[in-house]
Each structure stands twice: as C-alpha cells, then as structure tokens.
Design a protein around this nucleic acid. Structure first.
Length: 894
RNA sequence: GCCGGGAUGGCGGAACAGGAAGACGCGACAGACUCAAAAUCUGUUGGGCCUUCGCGCCCGUGCGGGUUCGACUCCCGCUCCCGGCACCA
C-alpha cells in the first residue's frame, strides 16, 4: 500500500498507479525528449522576470482609500558591504508577507532603504583611504543589486538613504522640535565612552559593560552631552507594551526589564546635627523598622560633606570615584565601605543610626542613598556582617523563628511585620501601603516610583552622522539653528583620524559661523547624532519619501501607518524598537501621526547558523581545514566539530549569498531559508537542504512545463460531482489551498505551508493528464486546475518560477494580479471517513465509514469490528467514548 | 537571584481546541533506468520483540508525579539549554 499522509488515507487506493504506467512516466513528466533531466534555467528566468517587474512598475504603490492597506516593513540594513544570509532570510520572510497580502487584495506598501550613517564608514575611510561617503554609496549600489537579484517586491521609488541631506535634514528638524518642547537638552553627565570607537555610547548600546559594536570595554567619562528626554514617556512606553498583542513575549519582557519600574517609597532620614535630611528610595518600606544604618554612594554630594576633615573617609571616596565603574558596580565585587562618624535618625524608630559610604550604592539609581536593612536585604546583610553592624528581624515568615543573631543570610521574602510598633501583624503587601500612608501623614516620606530607564544620550564625537543643529554664541549661549537654515550640511572635506575628538571640530569652515540671534561670531556644535535617530522614524518617511517641505505628510502617514508587520532581528528588541516607539509618540504629540505605537505586529526572525569547526591552536577552521577524522589539517589536533553557531566571518562559517545565487538562484535561496525552520527560530544552514529546495523547484518545473502544451487544450469547466479519476487530485488541490492559507494566516508558518506544496507536487507526480480517451477531458481539467493552484500558492515563495510557468500555461498577465484562491468546503468533504478504534485508550483497529455516519453508527461499527472483538473477549464494557467522525474508545472493566 | 522562551527519530522540523506521535525535507538503505556514474524515478527508514512477519505485540515526545476513557498538548514538582535584566535598594 502506498503510504500517504493520514489525512488523505481515504484516497489512497484511488491514487495507485498500475505498474504499466511506469513505462510512460518519462513521457508524462515531459522529459522523454530530453534524455536527461536538466535543471531549469533559473538564471534566464529570474533575470527575465526581474526585468519585467521593473519595466511594468509591478510593485509601485500609491495611496488608495478604496483599498485596504497593508504596510509590510523589514528592518533596513546598514550598508556594510554585502548582504549576509541573515539579511536575505529577513527580506525573504518580508517578501512572502508582502506578496501574499498583495494577492489577498491589499494595497501593500513594501519599501526598502539604507541606514547609511555610522561608524564603520569612518573605519573604512582610515583603512582603505576612501571617503566614508564613497565607501557607503558603493556598498549601497552593491547591496541594492543583490536585493534586486533576490526578486524582492520593493517599491524602489521610495528608497531612503539616511546619509542624504534630504533625509537627515528632518532629523535636524525633529531635533529642533524636540528642543522647543524641552525633549532635547544638554547636560554634563557620566557617559559611556568607547576608546575604540572614540565616542560616547547610549546605555542601550552597552552590553555587559562592553561596546555593542566592537565588544571593547566601555569606560565612564564625564562630558557635556545632548540627550533626548525619553523618560518623559516612561509610563507610556511601559504601559504600551501591554497593548501590543502582536509582539513576541520575549521582546516585551526585554522592554519591561529595560524600563525597570520599581514601586516603593521615598523616606527622609533627618541628620542628628540638624542639617537637611537624607532622602532614600526603597521598595520595602515595610522593613523600615529594621533599618539599622544608612549608606551613601561615593558620588553622593553629602558623602564628601560628612567626610570633611576625616582623612580616611576622603581617601575612600577618592579611591572609589577613581575606580573603574564597570568593575566597581559588578555584582561579585566585594562590598567595601567607610563610616562617616555621622548619624541619622530612623524616622520610625527614632533611633540614631550610623551613616556609611560604600561601593555598592549607585548614585544613578534612586536617590543615591539607601537605608540598610541587613535582616531583609542580602547586600546589607553582607555589609553588616563585615562591619559588625546590628541586624534586626522585622519580617517573620510563616511559622516565624528568625532572629538577628543566628541569621545565615537575609530573609528577603514577604512575611508578617514584627518589631514594627503599630504595624506589627501586617502582611508585607498591606504593610507597604500602611507605611506609605503613615509616612505621608507625618510628612516624612511619600509613595514613589523609580525607573531604570535613563534619558537617551545622542551626542557622538564622530563625523559620519547628522550634525546637531545648534550654534554656540558667547553672548546668547546655545542657540538652535533656525528652521529656515536647515539642513546643516555635513561638510565633505574632512580628515578622519579616529583620535582627538570630533572630526567636525577641525573643519574651520563648518565650525565658524554667525549667531542666528545676535549675528556675532559663533561656533557650531561639532558632535553628530547617534545613528539610531535615523532609524527611529524612517518608517514614517517611507510614506512620503519625496516630500521636500516636511518630514512626514500627515495624510499619507495616516493612510499607511501603523506598520502592519515589522520584521527584523531580536538584537533590536530594546535599542531600535524602544527608540522608534518613543519617536512615534513624540511625533504624535507634534500632531503628525494619529498613532503612538508604530508597529502592530512584530516578527523577530531567528539567526542563521552553521556548523563551526574550531582548532585549539588555529581557532576557527573552514570545513576543508578539518580532515575526515575531525583533526585540524594544519596541526593534526582534534578540532571541535559541528557546533552550530551564528554565521559570521570571524567564525569562518558564512555562506556567500552571491555564490548561492550563482549556483541555485533566488527562488531556491528563498525557498530553503523559509522551509528549513519557522521564521522566529534559528535556522541551521544545510547545503544538502538547499539542494533539496532546488530539487523541489526542478520537480515543479519539469512537471508543469511538461504538462503545459497539453493543458492548453483543457476544458475550463468540469462538474465536481462528475469527477472520477481526477477526484482525489482535485481534492488535494483544495486541501492545499486551505492548508497554505491557514499556515500563512496563523503566524506565518512558511515551513509547513511549503511542506503542503511539496505534498501536492508529490500527488501530481503520480497523476497523468493523458489516458483513456474517455477520461482525457477530466484529466486535463484536473491537471490544469491543480497546476495553476500550485503556481498561485507557490508564487509568494518562488515568484520567478511561478511567473514563468504561469506564462507557459498561456497566461499573459502577471500571476501576482491573480487573487489568492479559496478552497471549496464541499470539495474537501470526504465521502468516507476513517474512524480510529481504541480499547482502553490503545489503538486497536481502524474502520472506514460513510461521512454522514452518526455517533451511534460509529459506536456499533466499532463494537462489531472483528479485531476489536478479539480485544474485548472476556472483558466487561464499562463505557464507550465516541468522538464524532474521528474516534471510538471502548473502556473495559478491569 | 528575577523575568521570558525552549527540550519530539541519525538531523532540520510536523502534530491548529486533549483524540492515529513523527507530516514535509535532509541523510541512510534497497530497487528501476544506465556499459557505468551522475541526474531522475520507485520503495523502506523511531526503538525493540517473534517457530505466527501480521491491518501483529511491547516501548517511546528531557525527568518524577497527577488529572482524564485518552496527555507532546492540561496541572504540580524537578533537570538541562537559550535569551534578557541584575550590588537597581
């Protein structure tokens, strides 16, 4: 018996081919004259259709209020040189989405552009002696060509290049608008400084104390910098996360973590000497009675003051301030402190408690000062043990029994308040509220919220970016460049050295200017903007990329926005995706967009990985540098084999897209990257898998091309009820429509959609379009219907081949003008259903019944089945569970 | 430590609402075609068992329990892997 998938079991017998058919198989496959099966000529076909799409402006879109819109956007690339497989995967996913929605009748906006400002251009300038612009624009030209070779359905008329004045002038415009509203401001601050990049980095660009670009250690430097007040939107950015059902949970979690909201209280601790009190922030105000000392951050202004005339305190503060902050603030750094010999009063116990200065308290979180509750905070506990400070239990867990003397570690969980005067007996949640109320009544504190999120530092001491439109005048201070003077052009004659501060500072013609207010001599700001500013609103610009007099054109943006589907890498979960949300809210408040959230649905595609070989002495090796026994060919040592890691040049496990395209073509590259894994999971590259995709496309090609001539004579109508030999194939085609459509609608399950197409091709491979003259009309009708269905469903995945074969079937209109098919529920209705019979939950028999069989029919048929009866012998039937049209389970008495 | 995600054949992965575990592909094995190879086509392919080779039986979705007629799926308790945050008060 031919094995087919379970769902088609009922059709199996009808699909059997008599042995004699094998003789004619070559003929039916259209290869009888070929002698040898040649692969289809993807080079000619792909080039042909790319040319036709371009000539016919197939993917040009304009606003059309009469048609539902769909905005499909993939994160635009940084033009680093060549596209890598991650890009191609990202854009292949996006292209299927865009083409699918187009066929579903949507007006689809699918644009592409270049995130073309950034540091690598400056590095390349030094390395290769090229101007950053030259290097960037050569890369763009190359990468654009690659994308076109992939056949992506972009509206290239909307291409955006961020490094062009017609784009970055609007960065400056937005900066000025934000400056007007107090959302852009300058302040001195400790900032992250990367020695390699010679620039400041935003908090979001520091990962584990290292630069996100070059992974070098980041140091802290105090500099005067421009900031965007993202914290003005903290609550909205946090709350909005709850209203993004189309975003992956992990991205939302990351954003919540990054914003880091803590709810608690601020409490004032008066000083014994009567000076103004120390304010602390705590989330555990219910432990206030257990605060036996206080700790200030070394940078806290009061620390120096209290340490006046105390050499050891001064020395400690000096040493701590000089210490590398990344090291000092690491969790495993030993706690260290010094007693100021000053005292504060615990406002609830009215006890005198000592004030310390210690390394583990951070100025930038909360108020830079803490109350220490050693019994209920592990850090305070460790500190108290080291310096012999009192430990007092004020929270008892259920069952109690804790005492300060024999505590081995802090009890940080919730419990019941003890040793807390009027609050004794309250559980932690109520205690928290009660203490806040008490503090507020007595005016010694208040409920407070703290966030981890800091304002976004955007100044970069680099050349290849947007000039910040500010002029410094000795008389008038920092003066914004008037709107009418925009853009502030980035000068082209600049020397890039990567040392000695902002390159623009050395361009006299740029720096020296006149004050817009007093006309006196003045100097321009020489820092440029973080490149993340460009990507924070580019999706709005795509709606009106050519607008010369405004950043965003209200009506067009209102039509296209929000982005219906955004697709990109998880690495931007916080960075870009947080900034873009912030900018959208700012621009909304400028009255230019009706939405505060830019991206309705977000798909974070997985990385592209490949096996990696590593030799202990020679590092990463190419597969050919490792012999069959797994030893490095250079030194003979056993190499680490087959570990799957993200593709990267340094790991020597990359696949070059150009080679892939030369060898297999765009359709194969697309199909494999969509088939090998669901889009959100990592994709393990497999050369064999690519060949599998290529083989599949060849099968489709031979099949449809082989049929094409005969199918031109097909009848256009045939009654379903009259179908006989072609019936199962016709049904399979309808089932495939259903499956592919559902898979695309349900979170873009491309891999299973493609699997369904493969199943259909497998069935069609067994079907003949000629035969008995009496059957010929039916066979051709069914063959044509199935082949056309296959092509239409395949079109979003392998567009070139679908177009080509569509044309060969006699169509003169693009397959993308076809509307997406719908399945006929009556057709896929089976005449016969397979019922699974279980005895005590174990599969014991299968029976075929007419589709209209009811529950009672199922029950009696199951009980009558001879195999079931064997299993029932000597047993008492307890009950019979019937699942309509599916299953019968006979439960017996033991 | 807190938060999120995950674990299914030799491999990538299916199984939609609790109802046939392993679709589809890769690899492997066999056969057809061929002088031969490649390509193509056709089968077989989770593990084990058998004087019965069957529409056969037993086991099987990280581990241990539970709910249920029935669990990859739900509940409780673990292990391991991946990711985010973290001396954050």
């Amino acid at each position: 018996m031919t094995r087919l998938s379970a769902s088609e079991h009922g059709q199996v017998r009808q699909l059997q081919l008599p042995q004699a058919c094998a003789i004619n198989k070559r003929k039916f496959l259209g290869i009888e004259n070929v002698g040898m099966a040649k692969p289809y000529d993807f080079k000619t076909i792909e080039a042909k259709w790319q040319r036709i799409w371009e000539e016919r402006d197939t993917f040009r879109v304009t606003e059309d209020p009469g048609q539902p819109k769909y905005y499909c956007l993939e994160m635009y690339p940084y033009p680093s040189g060549k596209n890598h497989m991650g890009h191609l995967r990202n854009y292949s996913i996006g292209d299927v989405v865009a083409r699918y929605f187009q066929m579903r009748g949507y007006n689809v906006l699918h644009p592409m552009g270049w995130d073309s400002f950034g540091l690598p251009a400056e590095n390349a300038a030094i390395e290769h002696g090229l101007h950053p612009a030259t290097w960037t624009y050569e890369n763009i030209a190359y990468m654009r060509k690659q994308l076109k070779r992939m056949g992506f359905s972009y509206d290239w008329e909307r291409e955006i290049t961020c490094s062009e004045p017609d784009y970055y002038r609007w960065n400056q415009w937005l900066f000025l608008k934000m400056h007007e509203k107090g959302l852009a401001y300058k302040k001195p601050a400790f900032v992250n400084w990367c020695e390699v990049c010679q620039t400041v980095l935003a908090n979001e660009q520091v990962e584990g104390g290292r630069c996100w670009r070059d992974e070098s250690e980041v140091v802290q430097k105090e500099l005067e910098q421009w900031f965007f007040r993202i914290t003005a939107y903290t609550e909205e950015l946090l709350g909005g996360v709850d209203h993004l059902p189309g975003w992956p949970e992990r991205v939302k979690t990351m954003q919540r973590n990054w914003i880091g909201k803590s709810v608690g209280a601020e409490v004032n601790f008066p000083l014994v000497n009567g000076e103004s009190p120390i304010t602390i922030f705590t989330t555990r105000q219910d432990t206030l009675f257990g605060a036996t000392f206080m700790v200030l951050a070394p940078e806290h202004p009061l620390a120096l003051h209290l340490g006046e005339g105390k050499a050891d305190v001064q020395a400690f503060i000096k040493r701590m301030r000089a210490e590398d902050r990344v090291v000092r603030t690491a969790a495993d750094t030993e706690k260290e402190g010094v007693f100021t010999r000053a005292y504060a009063i615990n406002p609830l116990t009215e006890e005198k408690i000592p004030i310390w200065v210690a390394n583990f308290v951070l100025l930038e979180y909360g108020t830079g000062a803490i109350m220490a509750v050693p019994a209920h905070d592990q850090r305070d506990f460790e500190f108290a043990q080291k310096y012999k400070l009192p430990i007092r239990v004020v929270i008892q867990p259920e069952g109690g029994g804790l005492s300060g003397e024999d505590l081995a570690k802090a009890y940080e969980d919730e419990g019941v308040m003890v040793n807390s005067g009027p609050f004794n007996g309250l559980a932690t949640p109520e205690g928290r509220e009660a203490v806040v109320r008490h503090l507020e009544e007595r005016g010694i504190g208040k409920g407070a919220v703290n966030y981890r999120l800091r304002d976004w530092g955007i100044s970069r001491q680099r050349y290849w970016g947007t000039p910040i439109p500010i002029i410094y005048c000795d008389e008038c201070g920092a003066v914004p460049v008037p709107y009418t003077d925009l853009p502030v052009l980035l000068p082209t004659d600049v020397e890039i050295t990567m040392k000695g501060g902002s390159p623009l500072a050395r361009v006299e013609g740029f720096v020296n200017t006149r004050c817009p207010t007093c006309q006196g001599p003045a100097r321009r700001e020489t820092d440029t903007m973080d490149t993340f500013v460009d990507s924070s609103w580019y999706f709005l610009r795509f709606c009106n990329p050519q607008a010369e007099d405004q950043a965003v054109e209200k009506a067009k943006v209102a039509y296209w926005m929000p982005v219906d589907q955004y697709i990109g890498g998880i690495e931007h979960a916080v960075l870009h995706l947080l900034y873009a949300r912030f900018f959208t809210k700012v621009i909304r408040d400028l009255g230019l967009v009706p939405y505060g959230e830019p991206f309705v649905n977000l798909l974070t595609q997985g990385m592209v990985c490949k096996e990696t070989y590593r030799c202990p002495t020679h590092g990463y090796r190419l597969p050919q540098e490792v012999d069959s026994t797994g030893r490095c060919t250079a030194c003979g040592q056993p190499a680490e084999i087959g570990r799957t890691e993200k593709m990267s040049k340094s790991r020597k496990n990359v696949v070059d897209p150009d080679e892939l395209l030369d060898r297999y073509g765009a359709d194969t590259a697309r199909l494999f990257s969509l088939f090998a894994a669901p889009p959100e999971k990592d994709l393990e590259w497999s050369d064999k898998g690519v060949e599998g995709a290529f083989r599949f496309l060849n099968r489709v090609y031979r099949l449809v091309d082989g049929w094409a001539r005969q199918l031109s004579k097909s009848p256009t109508h045939f009654s379903f009820t009259a179908l006989t030999v072609g019936r199962p194939v016709y049904q399979k085609a309808h089932l495939t429509i259903k499956k592919v459509t559902e898979d695309l609608d349900r979170d873009f399950h491309f891999n299973t959609a493609i699997a369904a197409l493969m199943e259909l091709v497998n069935v069609l491979g067994q079907f003949q379009i000629s035969g008995d003259p009496g059957e010929e009309a039916e066979r051709r009708y069914v063959g044509r219907f199935a082949a056309e269905t296959l092509l239409v469903l395949l079109a979003p995945f392998a567009p070139h081949q679908a177009e080509e074969l569509w044309e060969r079937l006699g169509h003169d209109r693009s397959i993308f003008k076809e509307s997406w098919p719908t399945h006929d529920a009556e057709v896929i209705q089976r005449e016969e259903i397979l019922v699974v019979v279980q005895v005590d939950g174990k599969l014991r028999s299968r029976i075929f019944l007419p589709a209209h069989a009811g529950e009672d029919d199922l029950r009696s048929a199951a009980l009558l089945d001879s195999r079931v009866q064997t299993w029932l012998r000597g047993k008492q039937i307890k009950r019979v569970v019937v699942v309509p049209k599916k299953l019968v389970n006979i439960v017996t008495e033991e």
